[in-house]
């Protein structure tokens, strides 16, 4: 999955000469927290967040400093902006955001601003990757950590003519094991579970009574 697939395309941006008070107004109206700042060529030259702007705003007690709000955003914007490219993988962008503790990334294409992604977009993507956005049931298994296990389990699912909506594979606490989480397009997994148990797979979910903590 690439960034261009999940990014917000109609991105709202600001010109460097925009007044701070107008920038605050734009963010408030559009319920956004960041504004990329672009030049005449639509290249990213900075970014401002609502927090930066509030830091730059005068205190409510300092009524005589109102002219501060008339200053252009170019005076407070961050200029060493981190950006990503439309063809980057989603996980690269996620990594960049957690690594640098930022919550938004402007996206460039051919040196021009082309979109933006935020933490929220990444979380939506996670929801989609885990398959929970279409009618499906959860199946969770613990399998030995060796090659071919996913294929073996998938073959059993195929025998039951059930379509797989999504699969996640991740390490178990026990390093000799892996956890497989499927979302399957069926309401009744009982026959499948029975086949899996007959083949000695450890089914973590569904389980009949909540003894596992």
């Amino acid at each position: 999955m690439k960034i261009k697939d999940i990014m917000i395309k109609n991105v709202i941006s600001a010109k460097p000469e925009l007044a701070i008070k107008d920038a605050l107004q734009i963010m408030k109206e559009n319920k956004i927290r960041h504004l990329p700042v672009v030049n005449e060529e639509n290249s990213v030259i900075g970014i401002i967040s609502d927090r930066d702007l509030k830091d730059a705003s005068p205190s409510v007690f300092a009524a005589d400093q109102k002219e501060l709000l008339e200053k252009p955003v170019s005076e407070v914007m961050i200029t060493d902006v981190l950006t990503a490219f439309t063809n980057d993988f989603v996980e690269e962008a996620a990594h960049m955001m957690t690594e640098n503790q930022i919550s938004c990334l402007p996206i460039e294409k051919n040196g021009k601003l082309s979109g933006i992604i935020t933490e929220t977009d990444l979380l939506h993507t996670l929801v989609r990757l885990t398959g929970a956005d279409a009618p499906s049931s959860r199946l969770e298994l613990e399998v030995p950590n060796r090659s071919g296990m996913l294929s073996d389990v998938a073959a059993i699912i195929k025998d039951h003519k059930i379509n797989i909506q999504s699969v996640l594979v991740y390490p178990s606490n026990d390093q000799t094991k892996k956890i497989l989480v499927f979302r399957l397009r069926s309401m009744d997994l009982r026959m499948l579970i029975q086949s899996l148990k007959e083949s000695d797979y450890a089914v973590l979910w569904p389980e009949q009574l909540g003894m596992r903590t």
Binding site: G131, A132, D133, A134, P135, S136, S137, R138, R183, S186, M187, W205, P206
Partner: peptide, 9 residues
């Protein structure tokens, strides 16, 4: 909850 049961939503 959809975390546990069909349809997930």
């Amino acid at each position: 909850s959809g975390r546990f049961l069909f349809p997930g939503t």
